[in-house]
């Protein structure tokens, strides 16, 4: 595939190396000439010095034949404008943007950025996973709705341990997708499934509903 990457910071650099290794054709657009020079020396002449928010620069980068357009600068507004130009001026099929401020994600999706990658949210979800007192982990947000996929671990002293799922008052806006048992078996639960201690419940819920879902599954008897 032909991929344009805007921003040659650490993220852009490592991303480009990985994409090249997968045998994609990659070009980097970067404002800073010294950064471009460093990359040119290591990876060859696949760098354009210029502002990725300018139509003429993206044209030079071959945006009209790009399959994927990725922005990974540290400035959200630059990422947004570059993606919008790629989408609306060059009809790039897939635009992917790094989001530095997590609260921008919803707006970016609404404005046509196909995939948003929020570094803060990703790091937070890893940290949540590592902290035992954090019983709810955010896996991902679902595009075009305010739904999200979360994982909730059922603590040993929870009221729902030993109950059948059909009797657990799951909130209306939440749907239990599957349950990962302590022994590693994966169950798509029906109403008769029995919840156990340390089960990991993966569910689709909403930002507003996640607290209620967590309370139901982790509340102490």
């Amino acid at each position: 595939m032909y991929i344009i990457v805007v921003g040659a910071g650490k993220m852009g650099y490592h991303l480009t190396k990985a994409l090249l290794k997968d045998e994609h054709e990659v070009i980097i657009v970067e404002r800073s000439a010294p950064k471009c020079e460093a990359i040119r020396e290591e990876l060859g002449s696949m760098v354009i010095v210029g502002d990725g928010c300018e139509e003429s620069v993206l044209r030079e980068a071959g945006a009209s034949r790009a399959d994927v357009f990725i922005t990974v600068t540290g400035v959200d507004e630059d990422n947004l404008v570059a993606c919008q130009i790629a989408k609306h001026r060059f009809q790039v099929g897939r635009t992917i943007s790094l989001i530095n401020n997590p609260s921008n994600e919803k707006l970016f999706v609404e404005l046509g950025v196909d995939v948003c990658v929020s570094s803060t949210d990703i790091i937070l979800s890893h940290i949540e996973e590592e902290l035992p007192e954090h019983s709810l982990v955010h896996f991902m947000a679902l595009r075009g709705s305010n739904r999200e996929i979360v994982g909730i671990r059922i603590p040993p002293d929870a009221a729902v341990v030993g109950q059948v799922l059909g009797e657990v008052p799951i909130p209306d806006d939440s749907l239990i997708s599957f349950v990962l048992r302590k022994d590693g078996t994966l169950v798509v639960p029906d109403r008769e499934a029995i919840l156990g201690s340390d089960d990991e419940v993966v569910a689709i819920t909403t930002a507003e509903g996640e607290e209620a879902l967590r309370d139901v599954l982790t509340g102490i008897a």
């Binding site: 928010c53 959200d76 404008v81 707006l107 609404e110």
Partner: peptide, 16 residues
């Protein structure tokens, strides 16, 4: 004087 800042802020004002 920042085009991209204006564009982000304006679209936020309009859409959010």
């Amino acid at each position: 004087t920042g085009d991209t800042t204006n564009v982000l802020a304006a679209q936020m004002a309009k859409h959010v």
